[in-house]
Nucleic acid binder design. Structure first.
Lengths: 167, 167
DNA sequence: CATAACATGTTATAACATAACACTATTAGT
DNA sequence: ACTAATAGTGTTATGTTATAACATGTTATG
């Protein structure tokens, strides 16, 4: 049931991933990871991850809480933040700083230096890796400083949105 | 009254800028810029910029508000946020997303793609430019996407802090 | 000097996040 | 299987960051 990846007119970076497959794969992948690492993939954690990956768009913590509530889970803030922290630690969720929002990781090999492309109009977000984006962190080990984590977010307008209206 | 830039043992990126000069220069520079652009460098705006540049470290909006209050200015939140937005629009202040804090720009030519190096221990922040950092945004114009703004933050531990204690 | 545009002041509230503690479920050691 | 330890979830309260909406003052321009 693969979707075609070519022939689209919309911004490629937002579309060149097969979400149907992504969803199924991602669930399987996270299950395996947790199994292997002897971590509990509890109903709550599964649900949070599913909420994030089913739309595959950035969601605020409180949006996630609402979704949890609708699905019969507790929906007080710490619930979401704790699970999100946990999933982020293990690289299955990233935080988009510029949006105060969270998004499921779309990188099968869990790059720990993700970069995000964010359309400020439709708020779609694409996760790109160094090579695709043309960004190079290759030599980003600053002199006398040990970089542990990088945040890279590129905000702008995607083709679809810029076509739809002239700013 | 220039300070020496060489011979220090601490992390260079945090120290290789002459802050005494930076302060005076920065004020002069912002004055000139505002004059040239016919913008008002009002007492409030000046004060906010001074607060930020005198310590040259990231300050939260509410810290800035406290400082404003101490100096006899109004200190309700919108005051700070409005001025900060204004100063950011013109490139004299940047927001450090990872800290929810604001910092005076230390780049005399107002690069609009600043990158920040943040020590998570001492919370010192250094603004670096592409060449120094080894990061390359040269080709970061993503296919079918117009990048307007980039956020780049590298978090880690500076030499001074990593020397002080083993994590 | 009127008036439009800009700047600041103020109140209230929205949006985002965590502390602290209680309780439950799972795991590991005996 | 029992129990102690650890991990996970639930709940209340509160802390922190940011903005909406509207009032007032100030400056530039015809």
């Amino acid at each position: 049931m693969k979707k075609k990846r070519e022939g689209k007119t919309t911004s490629k970076i937002f579309d060149d991933h097969d979400h149907g497959m992504c969803f199924d794969d991602a669930i399987e992948q996270i299950e395996n990871y947790f199994l292997k690492k002897n971590l509990q993939f509890t109903p709550l954690r599964r649900k949070v991850f599913e909420i994030l990956i089913r739309d595959h768009k950035p969601l605020g913590a409180y949006e996630i809480l609402e979704a949890l509530g609708r699905d019969g889970f507790s929906s007080s803030p710490p619930i979401a933040y704790r699970v999100l922290d946990f999933l982020m630690e293990h690289g299955f969720v990233h935080k988009i700083q510029g949006l105060n929002a969270f998004i499921a990781c779309s990188n099968p090999n869990h790059s720990h230096s993700p970069a995000f492309v964010i359309c400020r109009k439709c708020e779609k977000v694409a996760e790109v890796d160094e090579k695709k984006s043309g960004i190079s962190f290759a030599s980003a080990n600053i002199e006398n400083f040990e970089v542990e984590k990088t945040t890279v977010e590129m905000t702008g307008v995607c083709t679809t949105c810029s076509r739809a209206a002239t700013i």
